[in-house]
Design a protein around this nucleic acid. Structure first.
Lengths: 205, 205
DNA sequence: TTGAAAAAGTGACATTTGTCATCTCATATT
DNA sequence: AATATGAGATGACAAATGTCACTTTTTCAA
């Protein structure tokens, strides 16, 4: 029987350990590395070019380097294996970015662990596996925000004042207000706070 | 050897399944039930009074009923077993409420799975186990918010306007502004958004 | 190099939010 | 009955935010 070599990247140690254990219980799966973030995973892969890694299974939101950034880097390096994203969030923006980075599997942490095991087998055989929750509104509308609007929203989300945001972004406060106003407009929000919430929920921040 | 009977409550199915699997691998641990939220767990316990459950291991933030509410109910019902909280967040407000509900273990999902297994053994022997990250600022300052301030902040966090909040709480908009103002004051925040963020981070919402 | 587009800034005004002193009214206290 | 006490309301003002038309500056391709 062919063994599938897997690298894990997940910042929640409890889940990382638990996943490593249950995957290793499968006799056609071999966990070759457990990493706490994208940077660790990327380093490991680059420093062990001889090691055959069939699948990288990674979370998205992690410190140092996110799973999306990891996928992006691997894609550019022509990484030979497949990439599966395992995340809490059914955000269409995340899925889009994942697809753009050549990801072939996107599962939610809400699904049963057996589904992960099935997905690993399918992806290894060359299939795509996308959690059904995402297919629904996946191609809804894409991120309407400009980069500056995104940056301003990100700061506004934490309650920074217009002036504080202006300082951080090296912009005039008037410009910041313009950006936030247009962002709220694009997202049909009544104010910057609601706009930030909507953008965040869609994976646009 | 004495077997420890455990009930799990965790809304993230992947983690729930994985934890159930690795705990069942331990030969002195028996997972008697896996529940998706506090309500399910409470029902199961109430409907199976004959079943001996030594430990309830529960997440906090879950739909329908949180782990803190579950602990509160069990405490009032004089539940015979121990309760261990397993959560992502090191929020002092959560810990305080947990302690008030007779919880004897509080672990973070950031810690390795082996630590959970150790904690289960210790708690079963009557010890308390609190994640060290919590001890640091645990008794810092307690929740300074009034109930109305809390409610107002919760709504303000999502970007509701003063008037919207007033409607939902059946208060005049002036009163809402007073509450939000005094909340921001208590939390040393510059505005309602920052106040909501601080309160949320401390587990006060 | 020039001229259209994009990015950033300005100014004016309306609306919302923050602050605070004060008022009302129902509920306890004695 | 007299009086505290606290939740909620009000009004006035300051400050921040939202909106929009318009100007200036930068960028970059023809």
């Amino acid at each position: 029987m062919k063994v599938i070599n897997i690298l894990l990247a997940e910042d929640q140690t409890m889940l990382l350990n638990a996943l490593a254990t249950i995957l290793d219980l499968e006799d056609n799966i071999n966990v070759v590395a457990s990493c706490a973030n994208g940077k660790q995973a990327l380093s490991f892969i680059q420093e062990n070019p001889a090691l055959k890694i069939d699948i990288v299974l990674t979370d998205i939101e992690m410190p140092d380097m996110t799973g999306l950034d990891l996928a992006h880097h691997l894609h550019q390096d022509n990484f030979a294996g497949k990439i599966i994203i395992l995340t809490t969030f059914a955000r269409s923006g995340y899925l889009r970015r994942a697809m753009d980075s050549g990801v072939t599997g996107y599962l939610l942490k809400d699904s049963p662990s057996q589904e992960l095991i099935n997905a690993i087998a399918k992806v290894h055989q060359g299939e795509r596996v996308i959690a059904p929750e995402l297919m629904v509104n996946a191609w809804m509308e894409q991120d309407p925000l400009s980069e500056k609007e995104r940056q301003a929203l990100r700061l506004a989300k934490d309650g920074l004042s217009t002036d504080d945001i202006a300082q951080k972004l090296f912009l005039s406060s008037g410009t910041v207000r313009n950006y936030l106003s247009s962002a709220a407009n694009k997202l049909n929000a009544k104010n910057r706070v609601e706009a930030a919430r909507i953008a965040h929920q869609n994976g646009w921040l």
